[in-house]
Amino acid sequence: MNLASVFPHPIIQGPTAGAGNTPAQVAAVSNAGGLGTLACSLLSPDTIREQTAQIRALTDKPFCLNFFVQGMPEPDPAEVARAVEWLKPLWSSLGWTELPAPAKWCEDFAAQFETLIALRPAVASFTFGILSEAQIRRLHDAGILVVGTITHADEALAWQSRGADAVIASGTDAGGHRGTFIGAQEDAKLTTFELLPTVVSAVHIPVIAAGGIMSGADIKRALDGGAQAVQMGTAFLVTDECAINPHYRQRLLTAGDHPTRLTRTFSGRYARGLENRLMRELAPVEKQLPAYPIQNALTTPIRAEAAKRGDTELMSLWCGTGVSRARPMPAAKLVETLIAELNAA
């Protein structure tokens, strides 16, 4: 089985961890002939099982499960205390006398991986790191196609050498987290259409373009540039089936020319979103903040409380550079619209 045979239209709905990705959305995209993706990185194994069962109740088409490749951190308590102090102006502005301590820093990827093997989706995609050859063999033995996220050609070659079936070439215009795992995140500077030709010429496995792709014309440009499919996250954030916070959704729909930028203030890993107060206030210490997932866990209660209050200035408003072109409609209608635009182009 190869990737092209799995879904008829060259459109993958990008995983949007923590931004309302739902089984209904995943199933709607797959039923429409694209490839729906469930963001599993922030979910427990039990929740992954429950949501996968919900997807299967809504579609018999292939879908993808997406994960962050990461170990369990053991942070220096002094580093954590420093970060909590830097965050104090933000959490104290919520009326708190202390920042709630995280119950855990992140989900256990090893446990998630075993769950993935047992669930056997058609496709699994990964970001933040790279699997071992043995892990990829286990996925292949379970009938699962393996897709790695990359931000430069060396990472694509690394995934190819370990047996991946395809790579997602993620440009700096993409919303959410950067997937860099070789070299410094700041050094992976290529936009989608700068990155795409360097990856296509470097590897012989299929390349999926991601970042700033919002229309059928954008898809055609990517396919003409050698991509076999595109992955679109921001475009699907405002679809009807996405359970995104309504205040976040409204900010996306009214983004206009409001700037997006890459920041590590929210999570300790560079990610793109709409600029807001939290980004600006932590900018002076941005490079000193703890790495993902420590900073991510520390800011989670602040963002959750801000979401309850509708305060988008303290929420992570992840989106790509094409956000002003996002169109609210049902997910299946968006796939249909994109295909019509692609054919017209």
Results as ranks from 00 to 15, higher is better:
residue 122 A to Q: 15
residue 211 G to M: 08
residue 113 F to L: 09
residue 143 G to V: 01
residue 286 E to G: 11
residue 152 H to K: 10
residue 150 I to G: 07
residue 74 E to L: 15
residue 19 A to I: 15
residue 170 S to G: 15
residue 179 G to T: 00
residue 169 A to P: 05
residue 291 A to L: 05
residue 245 N to E: 06
residue 169 A to I: 08
residue 100 P to K: 03
residue 35 L to H: 13
residue 200 V to Y: 08
residue 6 V to M: 13
residue 165 D to W: 01
residue 330 P to K: 12
residue 261 R to L: 14
residue 245 N to H: 09
residue 286 E to N: 10
residue 233 G to Y: 00
residue 191 T to E: 07
residue 279 M to P: 08
residue 40 C to E: 00
residue 188 A to M: 07
residue 137 R to E: 09
residue 343 N to S: 13
residue 293 P to D: 06
residue 31 N to S: 12
residue 338 L to K: 01
residue 226 G to Y: 04
residue 302 I to F: 04
residue 138 R to G: 05
residue 153 A to S: 04
residue 81 A to F: 06
residue 308 K to M: 02
residue 116 L to R: 05
residue 335 V to R: 06
residue 262 L to V: 09
residue 329 M to P: 09
residue 141 D to R: 10
residue 305 E to W: 14
residue 117 I to N: 10
residue 282 L to P: 12
residue 231 Q to R: 01
residue 235 A to K: 05
residue 206 P to M: 02
residue 248 Y to P: 01
residue 295 Q to E: 13
residue 59 T to V: 15
residue 251 R to V: 08
residue 149 T to S: 14
residue 268 G to I: 05
residue 57 A to W: 07
residue 43 L to Q: 09
residue 7 F to P: 00
residue 228 Q to E: 09
residue 304 A to E: 15
residue 5 S to T: 13
residue 34 G to N: 05
residue 239 T to I: 14
residue 2 N to V: 11
residue 204 H to E: 14
residue 92 S to Y: 08
residue 244 I to M: 13
